[in-house]
Design a binder for these strands. Structure first.
Lengths: 349, 349
DNA sequence: TTGAAAGCGCTAACAC
DNA sequence: GTGTTAGCGCTTTCAA
């Protein structure tokens, strides 16, 4: 190794502190962790030396001897998506309050990455793993992935934001159907009955559940389901744009559009504008996720919010509790809330 | 501890592998790292046992005995901002390619957090720290912070995306002035001479440099600088909105607006629309950062891009090189590029 | 090529 | 209360 320079910053250890204080390392350890009582006099002396050097114990050594690292690994589908970044930051803050630190890895929709990231977190001996999005979004659990997670669960608790059959994970999930109920009641209450659904894939559980409830609600209100009003696709602006173009080409246009998320909604808005229609006068738009994008759009979007702070808190609470061996419900629900802004209005047709 | 259940998943160690293979732990270590030659026969046998159990060495133990952890800590101002999330993911990908993993901490604009996060990363023995945004954005370096970083630098290389006087850090920064030059040449080339600047704070270095170049360019083109055309504020939509409202209230309205970032630009667009003006027919809008927001807006925004992939790569290359003790230039520049979309057009006034 | 032994920095019995 | 000792799991001399 050619990094002689670096070794200049040779870090100070608990032994250095002990020596200068004229005590043993264990005593220093005790004041560091408050794990046992130390005579006030010594304690103060030791503490002052710790402060003097701004000594921080080596987390690796600590984690190696302890059974816990006070670290929670988070695998997110993609933090560039504001949904995940909002949730991640909420987790980071909640974790910090609980004395934990978090690690982040992005799977970017690549199955292999999810698996290798699980391995990496295992190597790092995180106390728990939170998986947000990715394979756990699948309506039909991928067998190989479930198998992998099962083996991980043997040593480390796993908490997911979706579903994962045949693996002993804890789940903290959004009540998607309830979210759709809120949206439908809102629109129907405004007088809409021609309601379209754009974006999303049915292989994704959250989308499927929304779709189911969408149909249920239409039926419950005696509204005929029009297959042409549902155009699936993906979760990006383009997808919302394309789907909306198709829908606006119908002879019998809907008066309201539900976008699978804020990104798709932005595309829908663009399409609507290009068709010379106004929102919400001619057509209402609602979306899911209530990321800051909803607030950026003109008009500002009515959207389903999940209270990211609470959601993150729940995720962390669960991770902490489970890793401490406590009993926690396998399934916890996050209740969505409808945030009404300027993109929805009464139906005049 | 009540987590008996967890200990069931007692992880397998290098000794277990060694025992089953009938060799010593050192030999297993050697095949694991390819650090020395092991007889083919043994090597294969050991490898197959490793594969069989999908054994992954404990990173804590490894980091403790090694001098490197192959981990890079990243402190970002706020990953919820797409600028940082794009950069972070680019870093993650680049790091992965180099055999490193990254950790992320958000300082959220809180000075104390930045400092405590530095300590945390130090404890975790990361090989290098990359600080993006936060105190390093300050035009005037905060003394206490510089002092802190200086002490960190003694043991761990620090790379920043901004400036930090009096601390031996490496810098990988955007050529802000060049970005502004591109913007100004573009607008002036389109015939604009009444150009406004909205959002941003002068205490932030990147903003200040942009402002300087803005003035230089006006002067160079013989355009009189109109103080009313510069309305500072912050970096969010509201700020862009408020600033633009002020500017559009002027008797002599500008024909082009430069927003400090995409968020501010979104607010500017809203204000312009509310004034019944069209973009780009009545007024052109350009912004900085070219986050995906630029693509979400209607019209899509002309914006300055930094090529996040390359930027992240440079950051990681620097971190890896410096932590290996290699000589690296103290200051590296990232060249911006103008991405022209639909929000800018010729000036007809 | 391979194994034994020491050590990385810290914690946790166990004695005193 | 406090020191001693023995690990935690891995790497790395040093011998053989």
């Amino acid at each position: 190794m050619e990094n002689d320079r670096l070794n200049a910053g040779k870090s100070i250890t608990i032994y250095d502190i002990a020596e200068e204080a004229g005590v043993s390392a264990s005593t220093v350890s005790r004041v560091l962790n408050g794990s046992a009582s130390v005579r006030k006099e010594k304690k103060d002396r030791i503490q002052s030396i710790i402060d003097k050097y701004n000594f921080k114990p080596n987390a690796l050594a600590k984690g190696l001897s302890d059974t816990a690292t006070k670290t929670i690994g988070i695998i997110a589908a993609d933090v560039r998506n504001p949904y995940y970044s909002a949730l991640f930051v909420a987790c980071e803050i909640a974790a910090e309050k609980a004395g934990y630190s978090v690690g982040l890895a992005n799977s970017l929709g690549v199955k292999e990455r999810e698996q290798s990231q699980l391995d990496l977190l295992l190597q790092q001996k995180v106390d728990a793993i939170i998986q947000m999005g990715g394979r756990v979004d699948d309506l039909i659990t991928d067998d190989a992935y479930a198998e992998k997670v099962r083996s991980v669960c043997a040593s480390t608790p796993v908490i997911v934001t979706g579903k994962l059959d045949k693996a002993p994970v804890h789940r903290v999930v959004i009540d998607e159907a309830e979210g759709m109920s809120l949206v439908m009641e809102h629109l129907i209450g405004l007088g809409h009955s021609k309601i379209a659904l754009v974006g999303g894939e049915m292989r994704v559980a959250s989308t499927f559940y929304k779709y189911q409830r969408y149909q249920e609600k239409l039926n419950a209100h005696g509204i005929k389901v029009n297959g042409e009003y549902v155009v699936n696709g993906s979760y990006d602006p383009e997808s919302g744009y394309d789907a909306t173009n198709k829908i606006l080409a119908l002879k019998d246009r809907p008066t309201a559009i539900i976008a699978i998320n804020d990104f798709a909604a932005s595309g829908a808005l663009r399409s609507i504008r290009e068709h010379g229609l106004r929102v919400p006068e001619d057509i209402s738009v609602v979306s899911f996720d209530n990321t800051y994008i909803a607030d950026l759009m003109s008009p500002k979007l009515t959207s389903i919010d999940y209270n990211y702070d609470k959601y993150g808190q729940k995720l962390i609470d669960t991770a902490v509790a489970v890793s401490a061996g406590k009993e926690v419900e396998d399934l916890q629900m996050v209740e969505p809330v409808l945030v009404i802004r300027d993109s929805t209005g009464a139906c005049y047709n």
